[in-house]
Computed example of a mutant assay.
Amino acid sequence: MPIVGWSENHTQRTASWRAENGAPPPRDIVVIDDDISADKALRLARSGTGMLWRGDFHNARQLMRALDRRLKKRASRAPQAADPGEGFHANRRARAQRAAILGAILIELEHDYTIRLRRAPDVRDACRHAYGQPSSDGNGAAGEETLVSLPELLGVISAYEWHRTGIEIGALGARIHPAHGVFAPTRDEYIDLVADAPWPPGIHQPVVWDIGTGTGVLAAVLAQRGARHVVATDINPRAVQCASENMDRLGIADRVHAVEADLWPAGEKRADLVVCNPPWIPGRPTSTLERGIYDPGSDMLHRFLSELPIHLTPRGEGWLILSDLAEHLGLRTRDALLDRIADAGLAVIGTHVTTPRHPRAADSADPLHSARARERTTLWRLAARA
């Protein structure tokens, strides 16, 4: 991790810089406390200056909210793009700028992840979950302090709560526990599609691969439905560990094997059913978590389609679960998707469609509301053409 420095009480201080979203360290750091005004903090943040908080922890959150209100007020006055694609890119730029400004509020973590601020929560377990065990100098001595942005720290706390309590999955009748940096299955409509779609004709206990498994929720649903064996792959080692832990909790680890792989599991031959719920928006992710949403150049989608036929048994099917939000944003066309499917030597043998139920689909204040209101998620049943 990079090392950052600042002056405090006539002393030069240093700490490691941690940013899960890859944000670079601030050029300059000043020490602030409860006396700073939101307007002054906003000017400092816009200049690229990091603000190391030394006041009451709850007041730091209040300052962040005050900055956010100012940013939202300014954004509400900006003209809305007529073209959906332009609106999408403008919204992403605005979100990136907002993240940079709010991320200028910094919190110091002691070597054991303690926060030495008034009314600070105990975040040690949450940080160990997200970052691993505290480092040392190699001789057993405690490592150095770390600076993180307040939004990242709040995200770490929130992710740990999700991990501890889990998310109730109706199709499972059980909870799935996401891990930090692993996309949580809060949009459950696509899970119901997988739970309800019929097995490939003539196959009653299929061998299944779940490509890009994340928390392992689809692998668990398919195992519970009666799949003989499920291999769940993910390129993210955190996701593989998360999926494995969820299978242990659910008591199905004997039938679901999570492995780290870029799409296809090594050493496996063919599957009766290959399921993939890829990121649904072409674009560059800005964090590990966003990799569950954004797929640069639709690379994962295209590779899945082009390589799927050679991984299917003669009567096997591929189930592609994909939102059409990118189509409504002008980022991909339905014809382009169908051409990709055909060019891969695949045929569409059926579809199952559902309407998203997540809150943003009904939020008229969302800049992308027009597109979200028309969004549909489809399970495409694909088979190799004879």
Rank of each mutant, 00 (worst) to 15 (best):
residue 1 M to H: 13
residue 2 P to R: 07
residue 3 I to G: 01
residue 10 H to I: 00
residue 17 W to A: 09
residue 25 P to W: 11
residue 29 I to Q: 02
residue 37 S to W: 10
residue 53 W to D: 01
residue 57 F to A: 03
residue 57 F to Y: 15
residue 59 N to R: 11
residue 65 R to F: 09
residue 72 K to N: 14
residue 75 A to D: 09
residue 78 A to W: 08
residue 82 A to D: 12
residue 84 P to I: 02
residue 84 P to M: 06
residue 96 A to F: 09
residue 98 R to H: 15
residue 111 H to Q: 06
residue 122 D to F: 03
residue 124 R to H: 09
residue 125 D to K: 09
residue 128 R to S: 02
residue 130 A to V: 09
residue 131 Y to V: 02
residue 131 Y to F: 15
residue 132 G to R: 08
residue 134 P to V: 01
residue 135 S to V: 14
residue 136 S to R: 04
residue 137 D to S: 14
residue 138 G to R: 08
residue 141 A to P: 03
residue 147 L to M: 06
residue 150 L to Q: 13
residue 159 A to P: 12
residue 165 T to A: 14
residue 171 A to K: 06
residue 172 L to M: 10
residue 176 I to N: 10
residue 180 H to I: 11
residue 180 H to M: 14
residue 181 G to F: 09
residue 183 F to D: 08
residue 188 D to C: 11
residue 191 I to W: 00
residue 191 I to H: 06
residue 193 L to R: 05
residue 202 G to L: 10
residue 203 I to M: 03
residue 204 H to G: 00
residue 206 P to F: 00
residue 208 V to N: 06
residue 209 W to I: 03
residue 211 I to T: 01
residue 212 G to I: 02
residue 213 T to I: 11
residue 215 T to S: 14
residue 221 V to S: 06
residue 222 L to K: 05
residue 226 G to V: 01
residue 226 G to L: 01
residue 227 A to K: 04
residue 229 H to T: 03
residue 232 A to R: 10
residue 246 N to E: 04
residue 251 G to E: 05
residue 257 H to D: 00
residue 260 E to V: 14
residue 270 R to W: 01
residue 272 D to A: 05
residue 287 S to F: 08
residue 293 I to Q: 12
residue 295 D to A: 09
residue 298 S to P: 05
residue 299 D to W: 07
residue 303 R to L: 09
residue 304 F to M: 02
residue 311 H to S: 02
residue 328 H to K: 04
residue 329 L to D: 12
residue 337 L to D: 08
residue 337 L to C: 12
residue 339 D to E: 13
residue 345 G to W: 03
residue 353 V to T: 13
residue 358 H to R: 07
residue 371 A to P: 05
residue 372 R to T: 10
residue 376 R to F: 06
residue 381 R to H: 00
residue 386 A to I: 04
